[in-house]
Amino acid sequence: MDISKHLLVPKHTKLSDVDKKKVFDKYSVTVKELPKIMKDDPAIHALNSKVGDVIMIERESKTAGRAIYYRVVIDG
C-alpha cells in the first residue's frame, strides 16, 4: 500500500547535508529546535532516513497555497 498518494499526506523529501545547512542558516535554528518526526513514521518509510536527517515537507496550505515545513528525524 502506497500511502504517499493519500490526500492527507503531503510530499516528504530528505534534505542533503548542504541543503540542511542552508535551512539552519536561513532560519538560524539548531537541529534540536526543529519539529520532530518519528523514524518509523509511515510517511517516510520509503526515504530510508536515519536519526538526525531533516525532512522537507511541502504542504498544501489553504492560506499560502504551498508551505514548506521541516522536521528532524528522531528515534521513536
Binding site: I3, K5, L7, V9, A43
Partner: peptide, 21 residues
Amino acid sequence: DATRTYGNDLREVYEVLGIEA
C-alpha cells in the same frame, strides 16, 4: 480508492498515514 478514504480517529490516522496526515 486509497487516496481519498479516511477515518475520523486521529490516532489511527497517525498510525497509518503519519504525523503530517
